[in-house]
């Protein structure tokens, strides 16, 4: 089984090398102009003003956090999914309770407007 993951590691390494190789080809083949303005970040043709960063709305954080919590929930369900057939009705009731509580969480977030983009 660790062998499976050795494949994953080697795939990641070989993939990274094969992805970087064409960058090397470009570095060798492509011309380089000395024109300084080429490096100005694109801003619809005007000279960029201020920083690229501007303060973002807190809603990104709310969606990020809600995602994290529900993602953790999903993780807890995977083991259940595999053994449900074996354990039967009792396991089903347990999952109904588990999902019920998380349904309440979703309803709360919905009611409080945490799922609104505005």
């Amino acid at each position: 089984m660790p062998l499976d993951w050795a494949y994953v590691a080697v795939f990641a390494l070989v993939g990274a090398v094969m992805a970087v190789l064409p960058l090397g080809v470009v570095w060798l083949l492509a011309p380089r102009s000395q024109y300084a303005h080429k490096r100005i970040p694109y801003e619809s043709g005007i000279v960029p003003f201020g920083e690229a960063w501007s303060q973002f709305h807190v809603r990104y954080y709310l969606f990020g956090l809600a995602f994290l919590l529900f993602d953790i929930e999903v993780i807890y369900i995977y083991p259940w999914a595999v053994v449900l057939r074996e354990l039967g009705g009792f396991a089903l009731v347990e999952m109904a309770v588990f999902l019920g509580v998380l349904g309440v969480a979703l309803a709360y977030a919905w009611k409080k407007g945490a799922l609104e983009w505005a």
């Binding site: 709310l62 809600a66 807890y76 309770v97 588990f98 977030a109 945490a114």
Partner: peptide, 19 residues
């Protein structure tokens, strides 16, 4: 296992209140 779902619920409520 079941208490975990309550922990997740509590975290979500807390996050929303703070935000």
């Amino acid at each position: 296992f079941e208490v975990t779902s309550l922990v997740i619920l509590a975290s979500l409520v807390g996050a929303i209140v703070v935000a």
